[in-house]
Every structure is written in C-alpha cells, then in structure tokens.
Design a protein around this nucleic acid. Structure first.
Length: 429
RNA sequence: GUGGAUGUAGCUCAGUGGUAGAGCCCCGGAUUGUGGCUCCGGUGGUCGUGGGUUCGAUCCCCAUCAUCCACCCCA
C-alpha cells in the first residue's frame, strides 16, 4: 500500500460518487453568471512568480510560505496559482479588456496553497470567482453581493450563511488609521500575545482578527477603522448598505473584518457559516481599486470575490441539501439473455438514445447470469429494466420490469418503446 | 510551521506478545428467464512504512509517511 504511489498530500481525487454533486453546483453557478451577464474567463494555472508576489503582497503568508514555486527549464520562476484575482487582472490587461471598457468576469478552477490540510482546507482546492473592472460606484459592490445571495437561495443555503461587511477606506485613510492602531497596540504591549507581537509591524490589522479571548477587552477598545474612513469611502459604504437593505439582504457590520490579501480597499465582505467548524468562510471578496495600477495598468476600479467549492459542497452535504438530480442515477438498464442478446441489447440501447437524447441508459456488458444482470440493474439505481431474452428477440418485443414500483412487468413492442418510455418513466426527453 | 488523535479486507470497525475477525460490498448457489427479504458458500489482508526490543511484534519502543481535528492562515 505505502510503496504504491499515492496522491500528493492535500490533493484529493474527486470520485464518481461525488461528481454529480459537483456538476450540480457548477451548473447552478454557470446559470447564475449567465443570469447576470458575466462572462467566463479561463487563465493558465501557472504564472510567473512575480505576478503573485506583487499583487497578493510580499509579506503575506500566501507569498511567504504557501506557494508552489519552482523553476522552469529555462530558469524562470513559476508558481501554481494560489488564487484567481492576480491572473485575471493580468489576463484582462494583457488582452486589452480594460481599455476604455468595463468588464464583468467570472472564473472557476483549481488553486494551490501549501498549507496544512484540514477540514475545508486542501492544498489543491477549487474556487469560483468574480471580477469586475472599471466600475467605481457602490452599485457594482451591491450587485456582486446580490449575486452571491442569489446563489445561496438557489442552493438552499440562505438560512445558513451570514454576510459580514466592512470598509477598509482609501489607502490614505487606512495609512493614517494604521498609525493610530499601531500606537494603541504599542501602549498595550503587555496584553498582546506572541502572534500579535509579531504582527504588530508586519500586519497590525490582522491582530484585530485574533481569536485569543485574553485580548478581547483590549481589542474591543481599539480604534475602529470604520470611525476613521475618508468621506468618499464613508459615503460609498453607506450607499452600499442602503442598497443591500433595499434588496432585503441582511448583513452584520464587522469592524474587525480584514482581508488577508494586501490589495483590498474600501468594501470587504465575507459569507460565513457555523456549520463547517474552523474553516467557516464560504465566500469572501471586496474592492481592490489599486491592484490594476499596481500591476502596471491604468488606474482601474475593481470588485470581486472568490468562493471555495469544497467548502460549499461540504456545507451542502452536512446540511443534507443535495437534490435528487445531484445524485448519480440511471433511467433504464438493459439486460439480455441468450447467444444473440449482446447485439440485441446494444442496438436497442443505441436506438433509444437516438430517439430520446436525454435518456440515461446503460446496457449490461460483461455477461453473467440473467439473475445477476437484474441484480445489477437494481443496484444501478435505474427506474426500469428492459429485458431481452430469446422470446423477446424472436418476436420483436421487450419486457419492461419496474424496479422501484410494485407493478407487474409488461411486454411491449420494441418499435413502440420510444413513445412509451417517457410516460413509463414519468419524464420527457 | 505548531499541537492532539488515528492508521487492521474495497468500506465501517473489532481484536491478541505465539503471523487475524465481524458487518457491509463483490462473486456463486438455494430459484437451468427475474433484483429488493432470507439462508448457505466463496474471493479478498506483506495488520501504513522502516528500524529497534524479543525466541517470536499487528500488539511494546523509535522514526517516517498519511488522514482527521485544532492553532496559524485562508476560500
């Protein structure tokens, strides 16, 4: 077992039993994006290392210790993308998508971070993300949040997730606030725990995030960023919250909500759940007006978010919110008996698929006794079994056996099956 | 990167210092053209890996790898 090659730590196989659920969620996402007129963009999984170092922030954990970075054969430093925003900005700039136009884009795919795996956290994980460019007003912030809220409703998750909101203000206002904050923490040095001491000069806002209960009173009295916003950011935030209220989206303002990545400004938000234990953030995003310029483009306002597919799926599973059509299933299983049944079953299957293009039909392969074929039909989950024995083949009929209902089997003419099957299955194709 | 728990059949798990068992699954039979219930039989394991202690280790010790949970961080 252990001498065999196994998957890389934290990188999981998605097994057949799970893929219908993934396809279901992916389908919901695709429909949702189309509903809002967002266009899909697909970018390479590998980028030059500098792209992430410059956008995410040199001193973040992601860049400092979590990236899968290696040298290409020609000596270039490449990195497996740890998130989608940087690639998306790069691609949009490189292809002229930001030249005098706005964009509403979405993407989906695997991301890579070398972290210690845990529930809801893997080294290869999948994100769905949205990025909008060229829109500076709070209307687009609201739209992006409304879009996520619609997805929760679609998936039945709306009662199980909470929206948290904050504003980080302009970079000037934030810089001024940071000075105040650091000054406050310096006066409280003796209360700061070890982690916080370290973060005091690298990323002081993260101290606000701390879960250490001993620091709670000190943090509660810390200066709040929301009280030190510049006027424009304040108005932006107030308009956003008003829009959300109009739309009936409830939210909780969390003055301590800080995004981990350096590029955020003004609006930040997070959808969280209690049901996933320690990795409760299902979706997170915000505004990053400075990023495009930081990466060498013209100043371009931008808003986006990313959500974690594994966490979403875990959530649907723990809450038992998986609809039937997101489970594997078959409509029909075709079994045969006798020397000529192989040809007969395969041809019947093809004919039915021609006539009923949406049908989910499996023809038994691999021989075996009639009895075991019917057993397989049962285990397959199919509604009906179509049986082709010597008699049926001789007279052009097929025996229909109801696997889920207590109902007598019947013999039908093969020529008529395409007409009668939809009725027998209770669905159209 | 830190801490804790756990690795025995495909899956869920018992178990013992004298080289292993159950349930489910799978295959066959009772029923030579009929699943789901029942009964009978069968396949399947270098007991995660490497080393140590021992006459002998799946069990005790060390290391290592992996999984899970938490911290950190984040989706």
């Amino acid at each position: 077992m252990s001498k065999k090659i196994q998957a890389i730590r934290g990188m999981n196989d998605l097994l057949p039993e799970q893929s219908p659920l993934w396809q279901y969620v992916e389908g919901c996402v695709r429909e949702l994006m189309q509903t809002y007129g967002y266009a899909e963009i697909r970018t390479p999984i590998l980028e030059q290392t500098a792209l992430f170092a410059r956008s995410i922030g040199e001193v973040t954990d992601i860049v400092e210790k979590e990236m899968y970075t290696f040298d290409d054969r020609n000596g270039d430093s490449l990195t497996l993308r740890p998130e989608g925003t940087a690639s998306c900005v790069r691609a949009a700039m490189e292809n002229g998508l930001l030249h005098n136009q706005t964009q509403r884009l979405w993407y989906q795919g695997p991301m890579f971070r070398h972290e210690r795996p845990q529930k809801g956290r893997y080294r290869q994980f999948h994100q769905v993300g949205v990025e909008t460019y060229g829109l500076e007003g709070p209307d687009i912030d609201a739209e992006v949040i409304l879009l996520t809220a619609r997805l929760w409703r679609r998936l039945g998750l709306d009662d199980h997730v909470t929206l948290e909101l904050n504003s980080l203000g302009s970079s000037d206002a934030r810089a001024a606030y940071l000075d105040r904050l650091v000054a406050y923490f310096e006066q409280q040095q003796e209360v700061l725990d070890e982690d916080s001491q370290r973060r005091l000069y690298t990323n002081p806002m993260r101290i606000l995030d701390s879960k250490n209960p001993d620091m709670e009173p000190m943090l509660a009295d810390a200066p709040r960023l929301l009280d030190h916003l510049d006027t424009a950011s304040r108005e932006h935030f107030d308009t956003l919250t008003a829009l959300l209220e109009h739309a009936g989206i409830s939210y909780r303002i969390n003055p301590r909500l800080v995004r981990g990545l350096d590029y955020y400004s003004r609006t930040v938000f997070e959808w969280t759940t209690e049901a996933l234990g320690s990795q409760g953030t299902v979706c997170a995003g915000g505004r990053y007006d400075g990023l495009v310029e930081q990466l060498g483009g013209k100043p371009t306002p931008a808003v986006g978010f990313a959500m974690g597919m594994e966490r979403l799926i875990l959530l649907l599973e723990t809450l038992d919110l998986i609809p039937d059509d997101a489970r594997p299933g078959l409509d029909v299983y075709v079994a045969g008996q006798g020397d000529r049944s192989t040809e007969a079953t395969l041809m019947l299957g093809e004919a039915l698929r021609d006539a009923l293009p949406g049908i989910q039909l499996q023809v038994h392969c691999g021989g075996g006794g009639f009895k075991s074929q019917i057993k397989k039909a049962d285990r397959s989950g199919a509604e009906l079994a179509l049986l082709l024995g010597e008699d049926e083949i001789a007279n052009g009929t097929v025996t229909v056996k109801f696997l889920r209902d207590d109902r007598d089997q019947m013999q039908l003419a093969q020529d008529n099956l395409a007409v009668q099957l939809p009725e027998l299955l209770g669905r159209s194709f």
